[in-house]
């Protein structure tokens, strides 16, 4: 890395890490992303370009943007479902961006994702019980779980379902026997079951109807408080992001164009694009 870039990066990190607009609390951030870039083969410009942010412990950081702005690509890069071309993803003090395979596995537990469409995010051929057990059996065994301590499979699944306010008898059902809202609760339970530090919520309510949307948002807020989770909340719905988050970033064409504390949303210095988004909601 040339010195110039290093300097630029330092300057920028100073500007956007803790305290730039809103404080992220006293504790050190659980996730620090810097210079993240991802270009798809054959694309004219990067889908995600030089994105950096820090996520404080227990914080909900909102990310707003239209479809196609690169917010889902960013989520997939953070989860290492896709590999970023450049940049670092520091999770719990360790940069996971260059890690692969076996070296990455111990870090997987710390970050989990909830996708937009719960119908696609659950394997239709697996019973709910088995979908919920999967992460624990792969990643949770080594970890000491405090809230969802593992006594038996039955008990563990029951606890998880209870946490997301689903009846225990759902454990034996298949995803298609559940409503959309119930399915999304299951994917949330799966994501929090191994007590990750960070949960990436990629449009978690976009495929639900209004009433389920409200209920799922309330549930997520509750879980964040009771489990001390940190969220990256990704949505095109500025109103939902505003309701959920302490700080908000606005993304457009792969870049973060605006960032501010939730209480500064209506301030005059907002980016014109942010103001356009505000006018819609």
């Amino acid at each position: 890395m040339s010195r110039q870039i290093a300097e630029r990066r330092d300057a920028r990190s100073a500007a956007q890490l803790p305290g730039a607009h809103a404080s992220i609390g006293n504790s050190s951030p659980v996730l620090i992303v810097d210079g993240l870039t991802r270009t798809y083969a054959g694309a004219a410009r990067p889908a995600v370009q030089d994105v950096g942010f820090a996520l404080g412990r227990g914080e909900c950081l909102g990310l707003v943007g239209e479809s196609g702005c690169g917010k889902s690509t960013l989520a997939r890069c953070l989860l290492k479902i896709e590999e970023a071309d450049a940049g670092s993803i520091v999770l719990g003090g360790q940069d996971i961006a260059p890690l692969r395979g076996r070296k990455l596995r111990p870090h997987r537990r710390k970050i989990q994702i909830v996708f937009q469409n719960p119908a696609a995010a659950l394997n239709p051929k697996l019973r709910i019980r088995d979908s919920l057990l999967d992460p624990y059996l792969r990643l949770g065994r080594e970890a000491k779980l405090s809230r969802f301590a593992f006594a038996s499979r039955e008990a563990y699944v029951r606890q998880l379902l209870e946490a997301v306010e689903l009846p225990a008898e759902i454990a034996g059902r298949y995803p298609h026997e559940l409503s959309g809202g119930q399915r999304q609760r299951v994917t949330i339970a799966r994501a929090i079951g191994i007590e990750p530090d960070v949960v990436v919520l990629d449009e978690p309510t976009a495929s639900l109807d209004v009433i389920s949307q409200g209920a799922v948002l309330d549930l997520l807020t509750e879980l964040r408080a009771s489990l001390g989770l940190s969220y990256l909340f990704i949505s095109h719905d500025l109103a939902a992001v505003h309701r959920m988050s302490q700080r908000i970033m606005v993304m457009r064409s792969g870049q973060i164009v605006d960032r501010f504390g939730a209480d500064e949303l209506f301030a005059d210095e907002r980016h014109p694009y942010t103001r356009e988004l505000i006018s819609i909601f």
Partner: peptide
Amino acid sequence: RKLIEAAPILGR
């Protein structure tokens, strides 16, 4: 009322 409360809007 339930339907309206469930959906957040920017509160101004």
